[in-house]
Design a protein around this nucleic acid. Structure first.
Lengths: 220, 220
DNA sequence: TCTGTTAGTATGAATTTACTACTTAGTCTA
DNA sequence: TAGACTAAGTAGTAAATTCATACTAACAGA
């Protein structure tokens, strides 16, 4: 049998297939808390409960593309830091049918998504004790937070939660929120210094010393 | 519409679905090298090339179960350390049809799998420069090695590559192979000490000082 | 008993982390 | 315009950890 013959006669419809979705855990820091975007479900199952935004993976679409699409559909955002998290495959995780879900997480700076009543950010802390979270989405969120916590110290993901320009106190606050513990100012500054590009600008308008504004360093 | 009605009328066959497989990266340390189990493909596509063992995910089977099944089918092994790695969803990754693959990795102590001509261990170093690796399996292997490298220092996965009883030089060798760099003996011992349970046994038969035999400590 | 070899220990230098205390530069109030 | 208040930013030291080298210990074989 040649390769061509094989491909032609291959019957891919013999066994029933699971459906595949992508669910997105969109994190931001707001009000000094790590928060996640949830939507209120309008349909069964889990009607009126809170769920992560998600889409079915189209037959001619990669997983990354599906995740981008989920993000864009719900928020209009593009070019956001995003990474695959974990794939959830319990047989009963969706009561309708067998659905395998690939979860992604994304990090956005605090911003005004035009929250149209159904999409809202909720503090992770609260979500984890909410009773009404659809599917296994609570686990996904917990897992995402854990991933971030691990990654903060050996990557630059914290910067994704701030705008281009920021101050050192702001950056330290992000680290503290992600790690869930306070950090020493002097040490933090020493360690982070070589990732930073100082500008000549300063904050103003506060009744205390202004802080210098930085950007993320580009080369090395 | 009640939940029952909704579930009854839900039509899950409207859109074409991708197939889902699990591919397994089975690592062992052998001959002082990190090695991976590959099988020679007998069918198209990629006939006669080397591939990771894999299975289609059954409709009533979790992903973890599918991974266990893949392991058991190829090696007869059970109760092995195993973890999900990453999910690969490029549209063209399989020329037959759209297949999404969830990769897992597993760690086994060096042992004699009754290698029946088709399954064989190959050093990762060599695999990465082999031309004839099927699908995106080379990437999976590289990704798996990276995951292990990251995890060695904050978990106990290294122990999964040794039998119950082992010496400190053996354990250090495992760490060195996984990390790809030599470690200082004295430092290694200090750091690992509280994970170890010394036995009263020693190696023998070498023409040098015998080394004490340890086990992994159970409590704390 | 001497040699070769690897197991295992002692010890100090260098670096990082933990922590405290100070100086600086704004606004507000009197 | 001199304090008072506040947060930004810096100096510096003690404790802990990591890095590195040099040593001693225990076996087999000649």
């Amino acid at each position: 049998m040649t390769e061509e013959e094989f491909l032609t006669q291959y019957d891919s419809s013999v066994f029933p297939k699971p459906s595949v979705t992508v669910d997105l855990v969109l994190f931001t820091v707001r009000n000094e808390q790590l928060q996640v975007l949830l939507t209120k479900r309008e349909q069964h199952p889990f009607r009126n409960q809170l769920a992560l935004p998600g889409v079915f993976v189209q037959i001619a679409e990669t997983l990354d593309e599906a995740a981008q699409r989920a993000l864009f559909q719900k928020t209009g955002l593009q070019n956001i830091y995003m990474e695959q998290l974990y794939t959830w495959g319990n047989v009963q995780r969706d009561p309708r049918m067998r659905i395998i879900s690939v979860s992604y997480y994304a990090l956005v700076p605090e911003m005004q998504i035009p929250e149209p009543e159904r999409e809202k950010f909720f503090p992770v802390e609260k979500i984890l004790s909410f009773p009404e979270i659809a599917f296994d989405h609570r686990e996904m969120i917990a897992y995402g937070r854990e991933r971030i916590r691990n990654k903060v110290n050996y990557s630059d993901i914290a910067f994704s939660l701030l705008p281009e320009e920021f101050t050192l106190p702001q950056l330290q606050k992000i680290y503290e929120i992600l790690l869930g513990q306070p950090l020493y100012k002097a040490n933090f500054r020493k360690k982070i210094a070589d990732k930073l590009q100082p500008t000549e600008k300063f904050t103003s308008g506060h009744q205390h010393r202004p802080s210098r504004i930085y950007r993320k360093k580009v080369s090395s």
